[in-house]
Amino acid sequence: MTASIYNPATQIGGETQFFEWVWQNQTYSVAYETRGSGTPVLLLPAFSTVSTRGEMQGIAEQLAPHFQVVAMDWLGFGQSDRPPLNYCPALYRQLLQDFVRAHFQQPIAVVAAGHAAGYAMQAAQQPNLFSKLALVAPTWKGPLCAMGAPTPVRDGVRELVRSPGLGQFLYGLNTTPGFLKFMYRRHVFVNEARLTPDFIAAKHQITQQPGARFAPAAFVTGTLDPVANRDEFLTVGRSLTIPTLVVIGEQSPPQSKAEMEALATLPNVQSVRLPGTLGMHEEEASEVAAIVSPFLRA
């Protein structure tokens, strides 16, 4: 399949390549990019309607002088293929494990944002896959789930957005530049001055790729939640045997921040608090990298 191409500003400044990944007897192209040299570090962007590896660009710039930085677009997002699959946690768990095993000969360090943190934590239970975890504003609960929408409602919304015609219309309403700016201002960025017309236009362009609605519909409705509840989230956290750092955004929404704080209380987890909210890996990239870099090099 041919991957979608969009504004190069959404990349991290390296060479774009594609991993040909087989899922249920079909092959899909997964975009990734490499920058710098040295010990490898994998950067995993947060799941969102506008998810791309480009949101990790600021962190990549800070780490590239010391590491070989690899950033990946999840299937269904960014520059990767966006087929109309029934996206689910099992797909992304397998993709992450297969990507790492295909590209790295030794356990690697991972910097994961948002929902990607949950998938990285689960993958870390596999032997000899990861060496360190840096989890930036880690979350596990999708937007409609966090709002308290019952499962039948969330399932109905997902199927509506997946449907032809009406689904594309509903998706379009929820990805207008005005709505994207509203969502960023509400819980993604703290500094509204960063939400320039050019910034919002670039984010909007990401939503306009063929097949763009399918994976985001799964994320928004909680279908991609890596765990079912906080107890399961913390059980995964307690199972970690590698060095783990949690970066908590001080201005994160109360529910999300409570999950970050709960994870930070585990005895095997280091934590630090910085200004920022759910998009702090992009908005406060320099500050996050300044904390993550020495942790990775220790």
Results as ranks from 00 to 15, higher is better:
Ala64His: 06
Gln125Arg: 14
Ser48Gly: 15
Asn128Glu: 12
Trp140Gln: 01
Ser271Glu: 02
Lys203Cys: 13
Arg297Gly: 06
Phe233Tyr: 03
Ile248Val: 15
Gln122Asn: 05
Arg35Gly: 09
Glu159Gln: 15
Gly222Met: 12
Leu296Val: 05
Gly172Ile: 11
His281Arg: 03
Phe295Thr: 00
Glu261Leu: 13
Pro107Lys: 02
Phe47Ile: 10
Gln125Leu: 13
Thr16Ala: 10
Pro243Glu: 05
Pro84Trp: 06
Asp198Thr: 06
Leu44Trp: 02
Ala123Trp: 04
Tyr171Leu: 07
Leu245Lys: 02
Pro83Val: 07
Ser271Tyr: 00
Gln126Phe: 06
Ser271Phe: 01
Leu135Val: 00
Phe18Trp: 09
Glu282Met: 06
Lys257Gly: 14
Gln251Asp: 12
Leu245His: 02
Leu43Glu: 02
Val272Arg: 13
Phe67Arg: 13
Ile5Leu: 13
Ala298Met: 13
Gln97Pro: 07
Met121Trp: 07
Tyr119Phe: 14
Gln270His: 11
Phe67Gln: 11
Phe19Leu: 13
Phe77Arg: 08
Tyr119Thr: 05
Gln205Val: 05
Thr223Asp: 11
Phe169Leu: 15
Gln97Asp: 06
Gly178Asp: 14
Leu240Asn: 01
Gly148Lys: 06
Tyr92Ile: 04
Arg273Gly: 10
Phe169Thr: 14
Pro267Ile: 09
Leu85Gln: 11
Ser286His: 09
Ile242Gly: 05
Pro138Met: 00
Thr52Gln: 12
Val100Ile: 13
Val153Met: 04
Ile5Thr: 15
Leu266Tyr: 00
Phe19Gln: 06
Leu133Thr: 02
Ser51Gly: 03
Gly54Ala: 03
Gly36Arg: 12
Val111His: 11
Arg162Thr: 08
Gln11Val: 04
Ile12Arg: 04
Leu195Ile: 04
Phe233Cys: 00
Leu63Gly: 02
Gly78His: 05
Thr16Ile: 12
Glu284Pro: 06
Ala262Gln: 03
Gln79Ser: 12
Ser293Phe: 06
Leu91Met: 15
His281Ser: 15
Leu195Trp: 00
Val30Met: 08
Glu261Asn: 10
Asn86Ile: 15
Leu43Arg: 00
Arg82Phe: 11
Pro243Trp: 07
Gly54Thr: 00
Leu42Ala: 03
Tyr28His: 15
Leu263Gly: 02
Trp74Met: 07
Gly279Tyr: 07
Val269Met: 02
Ile248Gln: 14
Phe130Thr: 01
Ile59Met: 05
Thr207Pro: 09
Asn25Trp: 13
Ala120Ile: 01
Leu278Tyr: 10
Ala262Tyr: 00
Leu42Met: 04
Thr244Met: 02
Leu263Glu: 00
Gly54Trp: 00
Val41Ile: 10
Thr52Val: 13
Leu44Ser: 03
Gly114Leu: 05
Ser293Trp: 06
Thr221Arg: 09
His115Val: 15
Val136Tyr: 08
Phe219Ser: 01
